[in-house]
Design a protein around this nucleic acid. Structure first.
Lengths: 341, 341
DNA sequence: CTGAAAGCGCTTACAG
DNA sequence: CTGAAAGCGCTTACAG
């Protein structure tokens, strides 16, 4: 801390009362006359006093911070981290009014490294509550927080894998059904999906919901899995177009693969959306920049972060928080989808 | 802090020595026998002890955190914040090894709100050092940190406006010249620029450098200013194409306006890059998704954050840090630029 | 090498 | 209403 820092003792001396009187006055607690309180408050303000953060944390066992560790991809793909960013913006908005900050760590070491950091935070009392993103199947962080029920933690995840731990769960199931119904409404009966890697829990959730909704509506759906890369979208789209029952529409799990799929279709002289409709899962600038612009499933990530923040504050206040759903997806209709010819 | 938290006193009791001996042992300081040290270390580990973060900060006046306040746009444009995210990733990478965390706040209140937060941090000793981004002309944060030379702060900004304060300054000047020279090499002599808003300092820096380099090379350049929106790019590009000396190439200050300009040109039946070359300033997924893909000026934002982190650590160590340049831009050549017909 | 003590800046029962 | 005191968990001169 800087030399010049002024403490409660300085204020006490200046106002001629004891440190405890100053503390009571500053914290709006009873135990001081209004007169004294006024004098102290004015003096503290004019001296530029602010409570020392470490001292306050130590004495009241409250750090006023929320811990978040973000897993960054080694590959520096564009936009990786955009979800996280918006989520943090929402979180910040929720906790700001209570004077909470976010303590942030980023790691390229995956879930294991993240788990170590959360473990340190639990043991060192670095944060009052934890927010966990990007949970994987068999993620060690699940075990960590199960072993430490005293730690306040909220997962933003698929509900299926965090059972027993407070979770803000995704609406992927609902989102998948929404897209299928939308395409059904346009007359599509034979569709395909370029899904993400099968390791991701949300991939499976989407797979399931899509298959289920399709069967309900009497639709046919072929699903291929692959990485979130443009080339993958291109390759898988070609595979789908080459193969037997050519679908009239395709759903891509991310904007990147959607753009790849679009290029593949256009390169073959297939017109979009006249002959072939494309829906992207993650809305983004890339969806707007593409020609034609891509219809996409949009979610308000900031709203998710905001809700997470509110849930965390409730946990910090000692409330028991259960599972709650994310705000629903919204389908943004653009130029890449149309009725079946 | 949680009930079960174990402290140095617990370890002391368990190992039968004093608290100070435990502290010395744990911190690798002299003052304990090797035997005692070993015993204490083993015990501490097995008991799962970690130093309480607040207590440590209070006693050694070191918070092990770097403060960053991010200004978020009210408008939820895609990609806003991507720069910040990558920058934080680099920062995190730099400070992680020293066990530093990032304390993050986000505000929609602009520079004034950000300034208030930094001011609070200075007074409360919340962080050991501050990183400041998105500095504006007449930014109150400049005055704040000038008044508090004891606060360790690094600006990522244009060098021109932070004089006297440690700055990691942008290579916009150099970047602008690089693009001009590149276009010159392709034979372009009459170019245009769709620049960002004139309020931004980097806009002016780019304006200046572009004009200067053009004059050196005997080139002509028309510059129009506008917001970072696709419609703006479209509108300004149309204005430029309608007007007198039609240029053979255009430089857009951001990927968004570049995509808008591209649409405008294509809509008129102008072929890119045969008749008209386009360069985007900020490389992004949108540049890759566009058809044709956009040549862009790319900067390694993570490297910038990493360098900032290293500079901050040096400041924390008491070193005097001056101004240093960002890693240079790199021109990524794609399909939107070509030689003059 | 080791322990008792004071201190970091704040909060909060506890006596006057 | 007010002050002296103990405590949060750690570090660090200071005596033994």
């Amino acid at each position: 801390m800087a030399k010049g820092t002024i403490t409660i003792a300085d204020v006490a001396k200046a106002s001629g009362v004891s440190k405890s009187a100053v503390s009571y006055a500053l914290n709006g607690k009873p135990g001081v006359s209004e007169e004294t309180r006024d004098k102290v408050l004015k003096l503290a303000r004019s001296m530029g006093w602010k409570p020392n953060s470490a001292a306050k944390s130590l004495s009241d066992a409250c750090t006023r911070s929320i811990g978040v560790v973000l897993m960054v991809a080694d590959a520096e793909g564009f936009g990786s981290g955009l979800f996280a960013m918006d989520c943090l913006a929402g979180l910040s908005k929720a906790v700001d009014p209570r004077d909470y900050s976010i303590v942030l760590r980023m790691t390229a070491g995956g879930a294991a490294a993240a788990c170590r950091i959360y473990g340190d935070w639990i043991a060192s009392g670095k944060v009052d509550a934890h927010l966990i993103l990007g949970v994987e199947l068999g993620d060690p962080r699940l075990a960590l927080f199960r072993e430490h029920p005293e730690a306040k933690a909220l997962f933003i995840s698929q509900r299926e894998i965090t059972s027993g731990l407070p979770t803000l769960y995704s609406s992927d199931d609902e989102g998948a059904r929404m897209v299928v119904r939308y395409l059904h409404g346009l007359g599509h009966r034979n569709i395909a999906r370029i899904a993400g890697p099968e390791e991701y829990v949300h991939t499976l959730a989407r797979d399931n919901a899509t298959a289920d909704e399709c069967s309900k509506l009497g639709m046919r759906c072929t699903t291929l899995h692959g990485k979130y890369m443009a080339e993958t979208g291109e390759r898988l789209c070609n595979a789908i177009l080459d193969f037997g029952h050519r679908p009239t529409a395709i759903i891509c799990d991310t904007d990147t693969t959607a753009v790849g799929a679009l290029h593949a279709a256009l390169a073959r002289g297939i017109s979009v959306p006249e002959d072939f409709s494309i829906v992207a899962w993650d809305d983004s600038a890339a969806c707007v920049s593409a020609t034609p612009t891509l219809t996409a499933l949009h979610r308000d990530v900031r709203a998710i972060g905001l809700k997470a923040g509110k849930m965390l504050l409730r946990m910090i206040d000692g409330e028991t928080v259960g599972d709650e759903p994310e705000p629903p997806y919204r389908l943004v209709e653009r130029a890449s989808t149309g009725p079946v010819a």
